[in-house]
Structures are given as structure tokens and as C-alpha cells.
Amino acid sequence: MSKEYVFEAVKKVILEVLPHVEPEIITIDKQLKDVGANSIDRMEIVTMSMQALELKLSLMSFAGVSNIEGLVDVLEETLAKKEID
């Protein structure tokens, strides 16, 4: 699974949580709060992204994440490990 694939999955979740957001403004370098997500929205985006990718991670795994790319990286790494197993 590529990083692009994970980003697309996360982007789809962001649009579901924030339906008023224009898809073009969601770029991987942005922070979730830059696209209008409040703290609950951000937690929901993380949970729903895990569900979309069928991953189960503790929320601590995302502690160092500062932008969308960080979130995508954690998800992608876990996904890659899962595929090797």
C-alpha cells in the first residue's frame, strides 16, 4: 500500500467529518486544524482512518504527529508491517 493510497483514505475521512471543506484545500503538508478540524474532529478523523484501513492502534501512537503527513506516515508504517506479517 502506497503513501498516496493512505492519504486518499485519510482525505476521504476528513471530507466525511468536515463536509463543508473544499477537497482541494486538503494537502498532506497541512495540519488538521488548518482545514477546520476542532479537537473532537481530529480524534474522530484518526479513529475513522484506522477503521477505513482496518488498523487498530492506541491513540498514543499518534502522540508525535503534527500534520496530516505525520498521521499518514504512522498509518502507512503500521499497514506495511501488517502486510509483512
Binding site: I40, M43, E44, K56
Partner: peptide, 12 residues
């Protein structure tokens, strides 16, 4: 099945 996926919004 998957308690991990419960929406955080549920608590509100």
C-alpha cells in the same frame, strides 16, 4: 466487534 472504532464523539 471493534470497541477501538467507537467514535470519540460518542462521549459527547
Amino acid at each position: 466487534e471493534n470497541p477501538e472504532y467507537l467514535s470519540p464523539r460518542y462521549a459527547l
